[in-house]
């Protein structure tokens, strides 16, 4: 699946969790991706993050990197 679309979707998710004061946004983003994204989508975005993750918002990039270690 195209990384561009996944980057856009991940950043959308990031914007929501970044606005929640009482939650760790990185954990929130990672948890959302794990609960709702198919593994192939997670693999694609993780691979993209491993190559630098240009275009991913900083918190999203952190979350994806966490994910790539723990949830694939």
């Amino acid at each position: 699946m195209s990384p561009d679309r996944l980057i856009y979707m991940a950043n959308q998710i990031g914007k929501y969790f970044s606005s929640q004061h009482r939650q760790d946004p990185v954990a929130g983003i990672a948890n959302h991706l794990k609960k709702f994204w198919d593994p192939s989508m997670r693999r694609t975005i993780a691979a993209y993050a491993d190559q630098g993750g240009a275009g991913l918002d900083p918190l999203v990039l952190q979350a994806v990197r966490t994910l790539s270690v723990t949830h694939l």
């Binding site: 699946m1 195209s2 679309r5 609960k35 994204w37 198919d38 593994p39 192939s40 989508m41």
Partner: peptide, 18 residues
């Protein structure tokens, strides 16, 4: 135990050929 594809994800994946 892993979530599957949603409709738009299925269509994206179809366009990509997977």
């Amino acid at each position: 135990p892993e979530p599957g594809l949603r409709i738009p994800n299925m269509l994206d994946a179809a366009v990509d050929g997977s």
